[in-house]
Computed example of a mutant assay.
Amino acid sequence: MEAVLDAVPRVLKRHGAGAVTTNRIAEVAGVSIGSLYQYFPDKQSIFNALHERHVEEVKHGMERAVAQCAANSIGEFAACLVEGLVDAHSVEPELHELISAAVPASSLGFKDALQMAFERVIPSPEVGTSRPQAGDRMLFVLPHLVEVLVHAVPQARPPFTVDSAKGEVIRTVLHFLDRP
């Protein structure tokens, strides 16, 4: 199964998105088409498996950011989280774009995971009180803001590089956090 999943980015890099077929994937993976179909009934199931693998990688990255930076200020935490997420999404941007198009609901799980990460670092209200309005605003805006901007960075075009676009995302998030 891993050989099949690992073959998709190689096919994409060598031949482009139009050449990502089950036959080409099987050929590059070094397996028979029958073996591929034994594990994946169609190309969509391969994309779904790639999406699940990506989600797990991103969740681990978020968990690392929470473990390493949760004790810092919300701004430092957000910068740490964005840095790791941009790095994860910049590794194979063509593959990520292909999977995002093939699995339209892919951003929902990412937003939910971001929501949970921010809930862990934005102070909870005391028992018997409600969360302050600023916390509600942050928990609404931050997951959406970070999700959209992180997914935009790999498509950065001149004069931006991925690194300069990452810096702009971090500045944007920090600017939002500095607003009352």
Rank of each mutant, 00 (worst) to 15 (best):
L149K: 13
A17T: 14
M62C: 07
S100I: 03
Q44L: 13
S32L: 06
V121E: 07
R10F: 03
D163I: 14
T172G: 00
D178Q: 13
P104T: 00
P158H: 15
L145A: 04
I25C: 15
A78F: 05
R14P: 14
R171C: 03
V148E: 14
H15G: 13
V31C: 08
L142C: 00
A165P: 12
R14I: 15
P104N: 00
V169F: 08
E168G: 15
E119P: 14
G167V: 08
A156G: 05
L12R: 15
S164F: 11
A134K: 06
L174W: 00
V162W: 13
N48K: 11
K43F: 14
I74Y: 05
A70M: 05
H151E: 15
D6R: 07
E27T: 14
F160G: 01
A105M: 13
E126I: 08
A152Q: 06
K43H: 06
M62K: 03
V169Q: 02
F77H: 03
A101L: 08
G16H: 14
V162C: 05
R14D: 09
H15I: 04
H60T: 15
V173L: 00
D87E: 09
F110E: 05
H15S: 07
V103N: 00
V173D: 00
V146M: 04
F118N: 00
G30Y: 07
G167Q: 01
M116I: 02
A65E: 02
G61D: 03
N72L: 03
R53F: 05
M138V: 11
S130A: 10
V66H: 13
R64N: 02
H96A: 03
